[in-house]
Amino acid sequence: MAQQAATKQRIKRIRLEDALNANVWDVDTKPHIIVDSEKCAGCADKACTYLCPGGCFTLLAGKVLYSYEGCLECGTCRVVCPKGAVTWNYPLSGRGVQYRFG
């Protein structure tokens, strides 16, 4: 039993929010991601909700909710969106994620 508990303890998962919190950020007040919700609505797969590593795209009632604060600036959303609904650019003034290790 004790050993089982120990194993359980060991495989404690890190939630995405906590993983993002391990990073240093200087988040801009203006979003650098804009989603055209009309174009977005026509997409069945919504691959962005699985593939954005920052979890910036989530499904709520069949619609994509997006945020930019946890953006890791990889650009995946732009590439996987089949509808061209994502307008994405790098943040200004060096803002956004600050990789210390990379």
Partner: peptide
């Protein structure tokens, strides 16, 4: 130091 977001070791 950039502690704007407090980074706590999970």
């Amino acid at each position: 130091p950039n502690t704007q977001v407090v980074n706590i070791d999970p």
